[in-house]
Write a protein that binds this DNA or RNA. Structure first.
Length: 568
RNA sequence: GGGCCCGUGGCUUAGCCCGGAUAGAGCGUCGGCCUUCUAAGCCGAAUGUCGGGGGUUCAAAUCCCCCCGGGUCCGCCA
């Protein structure tokens, strides 16, 4: 509804500017504290027309003609600004639309565009840790938002099964005895694997001859040796399984796992190399192949192969990206900031190969520990599983305190939902490029206005509806005239435009901010406006409004991958 | 050393792309509100050289230049 209001305002303003005899290319429309939409276009016209901005705003606003059927209440010049306000019709239609669309409210019309979104894709060497924990949460939240915006999204996990790290584990699997390993920290397959990884890297550091054995293993894998392939599959699958278990708790799933080795086996990496070899960018140094990208403004050469001819990670990634673009119109990757250079190089290679499109990349910075970066290899990590357990435990203590009368199962269920929501929200609420330092006391501090706050608002709405019993379908939205009611409706009207802009900008924290504001607006309404204690038509109208709020809160939580509990 | 990112009240942060109304929030602090639909709530107060310095502009947190602090990457790792 807000988008419709905005487009009405745009055309009104456009016409008025013209009628007042001005010319300008941008309307400078923004949401504002002072109005539902405000234009600062008058400032823009000052230099050209040599009049005060106040005078220009006045000229324009005098020419604004609001038509009969519209969502615009009025427009007025306020100093240099031209302010626009929504009318009753806007509020009524918004409420009716939310009830009509229900769980679909907020989603946009289907677009005929296919998107492949890749996220997480970590090295399959052990359990997920908090250092890269932003990746699945950012990726999954974006996917939900983009789907809601009407795109056809496939979520992929790119399995890096061809790395030295995995070969190291395979070597360890063959050469290290069980009893030489530490006890597994958890009964999960990824925790089993990581022990081999840590022990093997330790041995390799002391016995350099192991390194050449590992290189041989990798060579056998790349050349398609069946028993080696079997071993790699076993190790990698164990890791992936463990990670999948962790992420399922956060309601994060993938549509497809794409194995890096597939592109070596099917020859597409070779094809990429052959093509690149024929270009003027290729250069050879000590037997290794590289692309000289200085003409693209990238100073560092893109090294494609080792001296022995084997390919490198980013080379294979080129083949993967060509494949992705064959299956999708838009490609989005969520990656750590350490991959920035490689991605620049990859984009250049795609250009050289004649591809017109390039992937859109959301970079995030790592979550580090106060003492530095996390490392799976060194074992300096906070595992995501531990964070999730702790979050859930902390939530349980809160539920216990507040709702002692609930059954054990109910308390556990609420704690799980609240704990997982808190973790997701805490990570998604800040811009991905901001650096984060992990501290247990911050990560588990739920007193903040975070996910529980929003979930609580939803539970409150549900509680009112439950007590009300049957809700009448017929109601008069015009009765909703309290300031808190009007604010709530206006806030709810924003959801589709938030979805639209976030799907464009790929900034999921905007949705988190919106969710918090919506919950706050609902809580203000809740406090100020009685629902069950009023009678007749007004009660029906307010119940309908509470139902609207319930719907919008649930939908926005859904976008964030957070469960909306009916009770907490 | 070079490239990219970040630097906003005690803490976490929005706004920066596209310059304009008193720089918005949250946490923490201080004070008020449970005989009203769940107080994981609501209301109020205090707290800011927008890292520093120049410049452009009628107007700079926002654009340009330099510097400082932190992160990250820098040809055969993934």
């Amino acid at each position: 509804m807000f988008l419709k209001f905005k487009s009405e305002v745009e055309s009104l303003l456009q016409d008025a500017i013209k009628a007042a005899g001005y010319k300008v290319e941008t309307l400078c429309l923004e949401t504002s504290d002072y109005a539902d939409l405000a234009s600062s276009v008058a400032f823009r016209l000052v230099p050209k027309y040599k009049k005060s901005p106040g005078r220009i705003a006045e000229d324009i606003s005098r020419k604004i003609r609001i038509p009969e059927k519209t969502l615009v209440e009025r427009a007025e010049a306020k100093g240099p600004y031209i302010n626009f306000y929504v009318n009753r019709e806007f509020l009524n239609q918004t409420a009716l639309l939310i009830l009509k669309e229900g769980e679909k409210y907020g989603s946009l019309p289907k677009k005929d565009k296919r998107i492949i979104l890749e996220h997480t894709s970590t090295n399959p060497t052990g359990p997920l840790h908090v250092g890269r924990g932003r990746n699945p949460i950012i990726g999954d939240t974006l996917a939900r938002i983009i789907r809601c915006a009407g795109y056809d999204v496939e979520i992929q996990y790119y399995v890096n099964d061809m790395g030295k790290q995995v070969a190291t584990i395979v070597w360890g699997y063959d050469n290290i005895e069980q009893k030489a390993l530490q006890k597994s920290e958890r009964d999960k397959p990824d925790y089993d694997i990581v022990r081999y990884y840590r022990k093997a890297t330790q041995i390799v550091a002391e016995h350099p001859d192991a390194e050449s054995q590992i290189a041989q293993i990798l060579g056998r894998y790349e050349s398609g040796n069946a028993s080696t392939i079997e071993k790699f599959r076993t190790v990698v699958n164990k890791c992936i399984d463990g990670q999948r278990q962790t992420l399922e708790r956060l309601d994060i799933t993938f549509d497809r796992y794409v194995w890096e080795s597939q592109f070596v086996i099917d020859g597409s990496v070779k094809k990429v190399l052959e093509k690149l070899k024929k270009t003027k960018y290729i250069k050879r140094e000590d037997g290794a192949l590289a692309l000289d990208l200085t003409s693209f403004g990238v100073e560092k050469d893109f090294v494609l192969t080792r001296f022995n001819g084997t390919t490198l990670y980013t080379t294979r990634d080129v083949a993967y990206h060509l494949w992705k673009f064959k299956h999708a119109d838009v490609v989005i990757n969520v990656l750590g900031e350490d991959q920035k250079l490689s991605m620049e190089q990859l984009k250049c290679a795609l250009k050289i190969l004649g591809l017109k499109k390039e992937p859109r990349i959301v970079f995030y910075s790592f979550v580090s520990l106060p003492e530095g970066r996390m490392s799976t290899r060194k074992g300096v990590v906070v595992n995501l599983d531990d964070l999730l357990d702790e979050a859930c435990e902390r939530a349980y203590i809160e539920v216990q305190k507040r709702r002692p009368e609930l059954s054990e199962k109910e308390k556990r269920d609420i704690a799980e939902v609240v704990g997982m929501g808190a973790v997701r929200f805490d990570i998604i609420k800040v811009a991905p490029e901001k650096m984060m330092t992990f501290k247990w006391e911050d990560a588990l501090d739920f007193e903040k206005q975070g996910a529980p706050f929003i979930q609580y608002s939803h539970a409150r709405a549900c509680s009112i509806l439950k007590k009300a019993g049957e809700i009448k379908h017929k109601f008069d939205p015009s009765l909703l005239t309290a300031p808190e009611e009007i604010e709530l409706i206006k806030k709810m009207a924003f959801l589709p435009s938030i979805v639209d802009s976030t799907a464009q900008d790929l900034k999921p924290y905007v949705v988190a901010t919106y969710a918090r504001e919506l919950a706050e607006t609902f809580n203000q309404f809740y406090r100020a406006v009685p629902v069950l204690k009023v009678e007749d038509a007004l009660r029906d109208a307010r119940l309908a409004l509470v139902d609207c709020a319930r719907i919008v809160l649930a939908n926005v939580l859904g976008l964030l991958g957070i469960t909306a509990p009916e009770s907490m």
